[in-house]
Nucleic acid binder design. Structure first.
Lengths: 211, 211
DNA sequence: ATAATGCTACCGTCCGGTCGGAAGGAACCG
DNA sequence: CGGTTCCTTCCGACCGGACGGTAGCATTAT
């Protein structure tokens, strides 16, 4: 069954390997390999064999570190979501002004896309392949991020900073969509810098296109 | 090889079947079956056998009507894109005012999502599974839709209807994302009507959130 | 001795696609 | 009208390959 997901690292006897070799590296290189391949070809079209090959390992090694192929997918999804939720709390703590918060949230979302590109792509494309409970759990956490958007907008409406005829639910879906969609086109090395895009998006949403 | 894609319908001897039976129905029921299954489980996780089963047919029938499983995917994608492009031209012909055009384009995009739900889902989720030339072709046509958005916005900027500091490329990506993302949450029978969502999106983009 | 790590070989299953043929209307011939 | 041939439509059995996962073993550090 391998240690796979639950690993009592503290109580486990830790082995020491020569010349800086660390089995945790093996695990990471498998994940890195998987990230690249799955982002490119999709989960179902990436075989465990290919993941192992690119990491210069074998299937045996893979199944020593992961309980199953799905377990790997789960790991990637959780890794991404945890980073998201952590950054989210920081934003909520940093400012109280709805407009500033929305601005920051947009910038943060786009930065995530640029930074965790493979994670994001995999998250949106392969989310539905998670089984039962896991899907529910991931969807719940994802809901938290969207709830943050919605809360900020609703807050802005009640405090009179935003127009009174705005429906926070709909505005949230629009905002989330704008930012999430960026994984389809935003390139880190491309002509559009993340900051510039964030500024344009913020301006469009807050002040509108009209002159 | 079956007739598959190119079918000289006019010159072909047309068989007439009893009591209104039409082999074209078989083809359509296969497509309908496929739309439902692929939307739900994804292309790779839907077997040809399952598609045939749900249409109360066999794999043999499937492979009589389609050259391959990919051929079916191609058909679905093209069906959707053709409808998109046709509606697009109508919008461009109907009005000249950039604001009106953007409004109409938003409404149109959302209506498409509601109407062609399965098509849209499959289009975005399984686009990358198209092979070589086909992918290029589909991406090209998709680019036409986005170019329409971009053109309208750029036009609005040069004519002074939109703010001069708007980058048409970025604004387009935002708009497209807002609308495309709707396939993830917009339900025809749900609490949010398409018209209402379209109105809110338009207001947000054109006038902005700020009071 | 024990536990962790990784490798090789292997298994069972599922799935896309093929092939030969059956059923039956359409067309031509007489 | 009867008989024959052709074509379309669909069936059902089958094949080859790929893939997820398993089992047993070798190596190395504690």
């Amino acid at each position: 069954m391998a240690r796979a997901t639950s690993r009592p690292e503290s109580t486990r006897r830790r082995q020491r390997w020569p010349d800086g070799y660390d089995p945790e590296n093996t695990r990471n290189s498998l994940i890195t390999s998987a990230l690249g391949l799955i982002e490119q070809r999709g989960f179902d079209r990436t075989s465990v064999q290919e993941i192992a090959d690119q990491a210069q390992l074998t299937k045996g090694a893979f199944y020593h570190h992961f309980a199953s192929k799905d377990d790997l997918l789960r790991h990637i999804q959780e890794e991404y979501l945890e980073a998201q939720l952590a950054a989210l709390q920081k934003i909520e703590a940093d400012s109280d002004d709805p407009a500033v918060r929305v601005r920051e949230l947009i910038r943060f979302s786009l930065t995530s896309v640029a930074e965790y590109r493979a994670h994001v792509t995999i998250f949106y494309q392969e989310r539905r392949y998670l089984t039962g409970d896991l899907f529910a759990e991931v969807t719940r956490k994802r809901g938290l991020v969207e709830a943050a958007f919605a809360g900020m907008i609703a807050d802005g409406v009640t405090r009179g900073v935003f127009r009174p005829d705005v429906d926070p639910r709909i505005a949230t879906f629009g905002l989330v969509g704008m930012c999430a969609w960026a994984y389809q086109w935003l390139n880190v090395g491309g002509p559009l810098s993340v900051d510039e895009v964030a500024r344009q998006f913020s301006a469009m949403v807050l002040e509108g296109l009209s002159a």
